[in-house]
Lab assay of single mutants.
Amino acid sequence: AEIMKKTDFDKVASEYTKIGTISTTGEMSPLDAREDLIKKADEKGADVVVLTSGQTENKIHGTADIYKKK
């Protein structure tokens, strides 16, 4: 799966169907969080990951919607 910015995804959204939401939390780098989200998306058969939230304090927390091409 590839990560797309919401603004970029909005241009092609009609080509995809939302298949779920994924999240990651833990003591990790932003890059590790990104890789974890991609891994989870791949496991669910998603083609595209669109980040919906991200937070960093002591731990990273990120959520994303996942989509499959129609």
Rank of each mutant, 00 (worst) to 15 (best):
A1N: 01
A1Y: 02
A1W: 04
E2V: 15
E2P: 03
E2S: 13
E2F: 14
E2L: 15
E2K: 15
I3L: 08
I3S: 02
I3D: 00
I3G: 00
I3C: 06
M4E: 02
M4C: 05
M4L: 04
M4P: 02
K5H: 13
K5C: 15
K5A: 13
K5M: 14
K5L: 15
K5W: 14
K6R: 11
K6I: 07
K6A: 11
K6S: 08
K6M: 07
T7Q: 11
T7S: 12
T7A: 15
T7V: 13
T7E: 15
D8A: 05
D8G: 03
D8W: 03
D8V: 04
D8Y: 05
F9E: 01
F9L: 03
F9M: 04
D10K: 07
D10T: 07
D10C: 12
D10E: 12
K11D: 05
K11R: 09
V12G: 01
A13W: 06
A13G: 04
S14G: 10
S14T: 11
S14N: 12
E15M: 14
E15K: 11
E15L: 13
Y16C: 01
Y16M: 02
T17F: 14
T17S: 04
T17M: 11
T17Y: 15
T17V: 14
T17D: 10
T17W: 12
T17E: 13
K18P: 04
K18R: 08
K18T: 04
K18E: 03
K18M: 09
I19K: 00
I19Y: 01
I19A: 02
I19Q: 00
I19S: 02
G20V: 02
G20T: 03
G20E: 03
T21R: 07
I22V: 08
I22L: 07
I22N: 01
I22D: 00
I22S: 02
I22F: 01
I22C: 04
S23A: 10
S23P: 05
S23W: 13
S23V: 09
T24W: 14
T24L: 11
T25I: 10
T25S: 13
T25W: 11
G26C: 14
E27M: 15
E27L: 13
E27G: 12
E27T: 13
M28V: 06
M28N: 08
M28K: 08
M28W: 04
M28I: 06
M28A: 06
M28C: 09
S29M: 10
S29E: 10
S29A: 08
S29V: 05
S29L: 08
S29F: 09
S29I: 05
S29R: 06
P30K: 07
P30L: 13
P30G: 11
L31C: 12
L31Q: 15
L31T: 12
L31G: 10
L31P: 07
L31S: 14
L31R: 12
D32H: 09
D32A: 12
D32L: 12
A33Q: 09
E35Y: 10
E35D: 10
E35K: 14
E35L: 15
D36L: 12
D36T: 07
D36Y: 15
D36G: 05
L37N: 00
L37C: 03
L37W: 04
I38K: 08
I38S: 03
I38N: 02
I38C: 07
K39V: 05
K39P: 02
K40I: 07
K40P: 01
K40Y: 05
K40T: 09
K40G: 03
A41Q: 01
A41P: 00
A41T: 03
D42V: 15
D42W: 12
D42Y: 11
D42T: 15
E43T: 06
E43V: 06
E43Y: 07
E43K: 08
E43P: 01
E43R: 08
K44Q: 12
K44V: 11
K44M: 15
K44S: 06
K44W: 14
G45Q: 05
G45K: 05
G45A: 05
A46F: 02
A46W: 00
A46K: 00
A46Q: 00
D47V: 06
D47A: 05
D47I: 04
V48P: 02
V48F: 02
V48E: 02
V48G: 01
V49R: 00
V49T: 01
V50L: 03
V50R: 00
V50T: 02
V50E: 00
V50F: 00
L51K: 02
L51P: 04
L51E: 03
L51A: 04
L51S: 02
L51M: 12
T52W: 12
T52S: 10
T52K: 10
T52I: 10
T52A: 10
S53I: 15
S53V: 12
S53P: 06
S53F: 15
G54H: 13
G54E: 15
G54A: 13
Q55R: 09
Q55V: 13
Q55I: 13
T56M: 12
T56P: 10
T56K: 08
E57C: 12
E57Y: 08
E57F: 10
E57W: 11
E57S: 11
N58Q: 11
N58I: 08
N58Y: 11
K59V: 12
K59I: 12
K59S: 14
K59Q: 11
I60V: 14
I60T: 11
I60E: 10
I60W: 14
H61L: 14
H61R: 11
H61A: 11
H61C: 14
H61V: 15
G62K: 11
T63S: 09
T63F: 10
T63P: 07
T63Y: 09
A64E: 03
A64K: 03
A64C: 06
D65Y: 07
D65G: 02
I66G: 02
I66D: 01
I66E: 02
I66R: 00
Y67H: 01
Y67K: 01
Y67Q: 01
Y67N: 00
Y67V: 00
Y67T: 01
K68N: 02
K68A: 06
K68S: 04
K69D: 03
K69I: 05
K70R: 09
K70T: 10
K70I: 13
